[in-house]
Write a protein that binds this DNA or RNA. Structure first.
Length: 667
DNA sequence: AGCACGCCGACT
DNA sequence: GTCGGCGTGCTC
């Protein structure tokens, strides 16, 4: 879509026309609308401000943003309606963010308004007024910090960032103590140093992390190099008022570090010099809201538009980042010296030791843990939270299901009755529908049961549990058993004395194509929490994955994985989109794109309320495909009608949906 | 979305 | 002859 080409206005005179993007999810309204600027709004109707405008045919007033002001409307020759009102004078939509929203939406066959909803938080009138008042007072920013060296890396990494290059950065798998006394992953210090260098050079840095625990570590590390007024957190989890205040702070021209989760990549920033993502393989970077733009993709677009440096940093290299390295888009950079975890691989539980068997720990892992526990905390990574999250019939081994909703049954605690993990119904007097057996067997162990068993095996040692519900973010250096689900591992002061990766085989059994890279990421991130030289024991897994962890050669694994995907024509070797909806609408949409060179269609296959097809494309054709599919979505949206009334049980046809990079394509 | 315009059945 | 049903299209 080409927009923003209005006739520039001569200096010194107010523009006559405002080009407005509406805040609407409707695909047919996803373009700029021209409005006449009435005399009385001439001073306020400036690019970026929130406005309300009449939508005559819809008979209502719509909200939107002025994208630009011009003197003559191009392409529309009707009489222009006047703007209804300027909501506030704050220019919340910057030209840079608009360009990003438009391009990201176009690439995903979605609407720019949907992106803007992620990029611009809801207005908080009181917060905004207070902030505006504070801006009027002339505040002086703290002096620019001195640029620290990026410890552990040669000068070439600093040079790449200073030259605004794109880098895939292997981070150092260690924990370090900050001057404040907080222990954080070494990665956080590396990114904080890179950000401080950027700010010292008079530019802003956007730092995105998967979740708030990563955010806390990076925030602590940034505090070592930057004064508080140069650090702005834009977490989506913070209260609306705080979030809006942080957003408004980003609009000022003070270079700062902007820290947040996936939506931070859309933050306005004064002269952006660095965009960094930590652990870009984490699925939390995948946006669950339409048009489902992955934060990595948004960052790539923004890097291109702004010319800032880009860093994808992690203990593992995502297959997507590996692809970018292989096409020469990213430059791979590694630390000067490789200090890698000491990984020990052991096969599945052997039966040498009765205690170890009850606690399902192979004897080698058991020995390592026993030796280590005297000198500090031991991390035990398990696959699932809860006590016994999955139970099965003791006789025929078929999975036990809830009598009410057919959801899987589990056991919530020692001695508790089995209950449904979906609807919570207690399954008293359960009988197996297959063999009529009445006894249940515990198939999986969660954090709770593992804690119970290990507590018995290590009497007198405190046991801590950290899972999705009860997250512990840090533990001290005293001996303790720390049982955590993957991704919820706390940072231990001084690092763990040993790390046991217990459920490797179970994690690997999940049925989706990304599972290999996910497991390597989970294990590598946990291994990076071990102290120098401490054993990291991976149980029950062998082969390429175990070798990649043991030899700390994650990029090589990513390369092999990418080769496999190339052979299969799976993402990210190709771009893929799912097209779903009413059968005729899907067929029409596919007809638009099926003749693009290299296009290939799987399906359509029936779904609950229509059909779904998968479209695979070469990267070079994906932009054109997105444009064509977007056209089909717009046509479908204007044509589809509600049910003829009176017909009971009639369901309107599903809307045509296009989703690029749908994670379900790989499942 | 939400509203106006437009072409076929039962009414004064 | 017309009042009004909701199918179709548009919104600067």
């Amino acid at each position: 879509m080409t927009e923003g080409t209005g006739v520039a206005r001569p200096a010194g005179r107010s523009a006559t026309t405002a080009r407005v993007i509406l805040d609407s999810p409707l695909p047919q309204l996803d373009h700029l609308f021209d409005y006449r600027i009435p005399e009385e709004l001439a001073d306020e109707a400036l690019p970026g401000v929130r406005v309300t405008v009449p939508l005559r045919s819809a008979g209502r007033v719509a909200r939107g943003y002025i994208v630009e002001t011009v003197d003559a409307s191009d392409g529309f020759d009707g009489e222009l309606s006047p703007l209804d009102s300027v909501v506030s004078a704050v220019p919340v939509l910057t030209p840079e963010v608009w360009a990003l929203a438009r391009k990201a939406a176009d690439r995903a066959a979605g609407g720019a308004g949907d992106i803007l909803r992620l990029a611009i938080p809801a207005r908080q009138v009181r917060v905004e007024k207070t902030w505006q008042r504070s801006q009027e007072e002339t505040r002086s920013a703290s002096p620019a910090p001195v640029a620290p060296a990026i410890d552990g890396y040669g000068p070439e990494v600093s040079d790449l960032l200073a030259a605004h290059q794109r880098v895939a950065l292997d981070v150092i798998p260690q924990v370090v103590r900050l001057e404040s006394g907080t222990w954080v992953g070494r990665w956080a210090v590396t990114l904080a140093q890179a950000a401080a260098r950027t700010i010292a050079a008079g530019e802003s840095a956007i730092l995105a992390v998967p979740d708030y625990r990563d955010s806390d570590q990076l925030f602590a590390a940034l505090g070592e190099y930057l004064p508080p007024d140069r650090i702005t957190r834009v977490d989506a989890s913070q209260p609306n008022a705080d979030r809006y205040r942080a957003f408004l702070d980003c609009l000022t021209d003070i270079p700062r570090a902007i820290l947040g989760n996936r939506s931070a990549v859309y933050a306005p920033a004064a002269s952006l010099g660095l965009l960094a993502l930590f652990d870009d393989g984490d699925p939390l970077y995948s946006e669950p809201l339409s048009p489902y733009v992955h934060a990595r993709d948004a960052a790539l677009i923004r890097q291109q538009q702004s010319g800032a440096a880009l860093v994808l940093a992690g203990h593992t290299r995502s297959v997507d980042a590996q692809r970018l390295v292989e096409i020469g888009w990213l430059e791979a950079a590694a630390p000067e010296r490789a200090a890698t975890p000491r990984v020990l691989i052991t096969a599945k539980a052997d039966h040498e030791d009765a205690v170890a068997v009850t606690a399902r720990i192979p004897s080698m892992a058991w020995r390592q843990a026993k030796e280590a526990i005297a000198s500090g905390p031991v991390l035990v990574q398990v696959a699932r939270p809860g006590y016994a999250p999955v139970v099965a019939c003791a006789t025929c081994s078929s999975a036990a299901r809830c009598g009410t909703c057919a959801g899987p049954l589990g056991i919530a605690g020692a001695g508790a009755a089995p209950s449904c993990t979906l609807c919570g119904a207690i399954a008293a007097g359960w009988t197996c529908p297959t063999c009529e057996g009445t006894k249940l067997r515990l198939v999986t162990r969660g954090t709770g049961r593992t804690a119970e068993e290990l507590g018995r095996a290590f009497p007198g040692v405190p046991v801590l549990i950290s899972d999705g519900e009860r997250q512990v973010t840090a533990v001290d250096a005293r001996p303790a058993l720390v049982i955590a689900t993957r991704g919820a591992e706390p940072v231990a002061a001084g690092g763990y004395a040993a790390v046991l990766l217990l459920d490797g085989d179970r994690m690997l059994a999940a049925e989706h194509l990304r599972i290999g890279e996910d497991c390597l990421r989970w294990w590598s991130n946990a291994a990076a929490l071990a102290r120098q030289g401490a054993p990291v024991v991976l149980t029950g897994v062998t082969g390429d994955l175990a070798r990649a962890l043991a030899t700390w050669t994650q990029p090589a694994f990513a390369h092999a994985e990418l080769e496999d995907r190339r052979a299969l024509r799976f993402p990210p070797a190709v771009r893929a989109a799912s097209v779903s909806g009413d059968a005729t609408a899907v067929a029409e949409a596919l007809a638009e794109v099926r003749d693009l060179p290299g296009a290939n269609i799987l399906g359509p296959t029936p779904t609950d309320d229509g059909v779904r097809a998968i479209l695979r494309l070469d990267y070079g054709q994906a932009g054109e495909a997105a444009r064509l599919l977007r056209g089909a979505v717009v046509r479908n949206a204007t044509r589809r009608r509600k049910a003829p009334q009176g017909k009971a049980g009639y369901r309107p046809p599903p809307t045509l949906k296009v989703r690029f990079d749908d994670p379900e394509i790989l499942s």
